[in-house]
């Protein structure tokens, strides 16, 4: 319980920090007053149209990725599982890349995220079709890998055939993941799906706890495994699809956050779900503040930073796990 409170307090703190830290260099109190009261001036515009959506998206997407990672690890009973495993992030990225390449993305702000969501939907339908209703975790992993590989190949094909170097450049940068220049429109596109998917994933706690003892024991304890798997796939697809659609590919949060927090919740997969959601929000808010502070003029990409921080952290965790096993 104290862990939940601590993480929630950190989320609150970082959320406020994300609102008041920026290149404009304004006084924090003045900034917050401009956000809440609104004086019609430029500061209110900056706060409401730029900083607020960015901070909201960081918190939402971080929570979504942390939660989906914890659910996926619990379901597969494997600490190396990642929400991208079922192919949703790859197929969402493909949808976004097609929107960028065809120029659809330049027509309206909706086009890119909607195209990415369509990609995610097609990806998840293919995974469901391949894995089958009683497929079990191994077929799910294999279907996910196949869809990820196919989406990756098609993304490369689009880049390969791109006649326009600027479009190719834009695609590459988009795929690195970022929260820069997002608006409240992006928040409203992502929010309903992230809320819906999160509710689905949070409902899995008891089933994931029971799965600690294996699929046979869990089913004999009254857990409906096919339904659990379907809820997991659809919930993950909703949150990861929506996150990728508005922010691009942001890696390592779904992998590292559950791993770091597992020891604090007695390793129980059910209790890890809400803790990882809060932990993911903390990590992404912190990372998004960091990209603005480290190289403000160079537009350091968020996904690059999370990977740069996440990979060494992950190596450290693997090293520790290896020592614990030996």
């Amino acid at each position: 319980m104290t862990l939940t409170r601590l993480l929630a307090a950190l989320v609150g703190l970082l959320f406020v920090a994300a609102l008041v830290i920026g290149p404009a260099g304004m006084d924090p109190v003045v900034s917050l007053r401009a956000l809440l009261v609104g004086d019609g001036g430029p500061l209110t515009l900056v706060m409401r149209e730029i900083r607020l959506p960015r901070a909201l998206l960081a918190a939402m997407i971080g929570a979504a990725l942390g939660l989906a990672g914890a659910a996926m690890q619990g379901f597969l009973r494997n600490p190396l599982a990642d929400p991208g495993l079922i192919g949703v992030s790859g197929s969402a990225a493909l949808g976004a890349v097609i929107a960028l390449q065809t120029g659809l993305a330049t027509m309206t702000a909706f086009a890119l995220p909607v195209s990415a969501l369509a990609g995610a939907l097609i990806g998840v339908l293919l995974v469901l079709l391949l894995a089958g209703p009683r497929g079990g975790s191994l077929t799910l992993i294999l279907a996910g890998i196949a869809i990820s590989a196919l989406a990756g190949a098609l993304t490369s094909l689009v880049l390969n055939l791109s006649p326009n170097p600027f479009a190719a450049n834009e695609i590459v940068f988009w795929m690195m993941g970022s929260l820069a220049d997002r608006s409240m429109t992006h928040v409203w596109i992502a929010l309903p799906l992230i809320v819906l998917g999160s509710v689905m994933l949070l409902s899995l706690g008891r089933g994931l706890d029971a799965l600690t003892l294996g699929e046979d024991a869990a089913q004999a304890m009254g857990i409906n495994l096919p339904r659990l798997q379907l809820t997991l796939i659809l919930g993950t697809a909703a949150v990861v699809g929506a996150s990728t659609a508005v922010a691009g590919a942001i890696g390592f949060i779904g992998l590292v956050v559950p791993h770091v927090l597992r020891g604090f919740v007695g390793a129980r997969p059910g209790r890890l779900l809400p803790a990882s959601a809060l932990g993911g929000a903390v990590m992404l808010l912190a990372a998004d503040i960091a990209v603005r502070m480290i190289l403000p003029e160079r537009d350091l990409k968020l996904g690059v930073l999370t990977a740069l921080v996440g990979a060494p952290l992950f190596l450290h965790l693997i090293y520790r796990t290896r020592r614990a096993i030996a």
Binding site: R77, R206, D209, A210, L211, T212, L213, G214, D216, A217, A220, M221, G222, I223, R262, G266, A267, R268, P269
Partner: peptide, 25 residues
């Protein structure tokens, strides 16, 4: 109740937590 032959314990949960899983249904 069913105790399968495969002794799967996926996560380092405490003994008491594990036994409590029997209350799931």
């Amino acid at each position: 109740a069913w105790m399968p032959q495969a002794r799967d314990i996926a996560w380092p949960v405490s003994v008491e937590t594990l036994v409590m899983l029997g209350r799931t249904p």
